[in-house]
Design a protein around this nucleic acid. Structure first.
Lengths: 189, 189
DNA sequence: TAATTTAATTAACCAATGGTCAATAAAGGA
DNA sequence: TCCTTTATTGACCATTGGTTAATTAAATTA
């Protein structure tokens, strides 16, 4: 009955992550099932559990790369041209753009409140916040209070978390995003 | 095999809503199951489906009262004593307080992006936003732009949606909430 | 009061889900 | 060649939301 595939057909963590990522792009965490992933990979869903302890762990592996993508996005703004004010605006819209163009990922990264996810995803999201704070400090010569930075971050999060699911991608909310960024910029003066 | 209970033991919408509400207080939408509700009511879970088309409809019925509670909270601030600035702060912290003291309800009311919920819960949440905007307009003699009001709302939503699950109730985030409200107040100047 | 209609309930069912595990077969080393 | 490790299967478990035929109590009508 049971079996093992030939070497070249064997599963690898990478393959699983890739397929999970693929399905994650158009569907959210709860709708992507281990069975659907397995089916597409041509294996039984039990096989996935040999490589990942559970669904959450698999999706954390998927989402890891998105954390670094976000951090890079934030950091890269500093290198761009323009005055620091427009750079700050770019940080704000950049964050929103990331959130609205990777909605299921964003949800998993910043909105999941599952017990199991906490230790993993929560630390990573803290690091992203730290990166955000660093960049802002740098762009303002460290004149901003932590409280203001935190409020700004929370307000950006609010934008993403509000428009998520209501809009398909960043472009559809671009104008509102720019206005919101402007609002926050003024608040920081 | 099957049966019908005696008149006084019959199920009513009210009883179901009450029990669902009760379980909703300490657990979120996905964790409260129709079966658990039925068990506590001493009936089969199928019986609930005679009174409510599905889980979503039941929970919308539960949450309806919370929408009016929130609207009242917002509205009542106007009657309080104090200058309009402190009243605005009270509106902000009032919204946050509601959100953090009714987390599962808030999630269902403002964060659910389920297709089925949309028509119901989305309209109600729009009404709550409208109420919020009205109160703010009134407190500022209609000098606020719609864009600023919207940004403010979104920023408050961000606070709740960020602290939710991280904190048990409003009190645990009170200081941060006050600071955030202050931040938004300044932004509106 | 008797017959009929209507409302409510049950229990068996369905199709999913995440997760576990013994059995098994391939791979690789001795 | 034998043995051990490793990867995979598929049957299983409990649980979920949801549906439905059958049944029976209550309300209505004659």
């Amino acid at each position: 009955m049971a079996a093992r595939k030939k070497a070249m057909d064997e599963l690898s963590k990478e393959m699983i992550i890739q397929e999970a990522n693929k399905q994650f792009l158009t569907s959210d965490f709860h709708k992507v099932s281990m069975r659907a992933i397995a089916k597409e990979l041509g294996c039984s869903h039990g096989a996935i559990y040999y490589h990942f302890a559970n669904k959450t762990e698999l999706f954390y592996a998927v989402v890891e790369q998105y954390f670094t993508e976000l951090n890079m996005t934030l950091e890269n703004v500093i290198q761009e041209e323009g005055d620091s004010r427009s750079k700050m605006a770019a940080v704000f819209t950049g964050f929103i753009e990331f959130g609205l163009n990777h909605q299921s990922q964003y949800e998993f990264m910043f909105m999941q409140r599952n017990k199991e996810v906490n230790p993993l995803s929560q630390q990573a999201s803290n690091e992203s916040y730290t990166k955000f704070a660093q960049v802002l400090q740098e762009l303002t010569n460290h004149t901003l209070s932590l409280a203001k930075i935190y409020s700004t971050f929370i307000s950006l999060h609010g934008f993403v978390s509000h428009y998520r699911g209501f809009v398909e991608n960043y472009n559809e909310a671009k104008e509102a995003a720019i206005q919101h960024s402007q609002f926050l910029l003024e608040a920081l003066d």
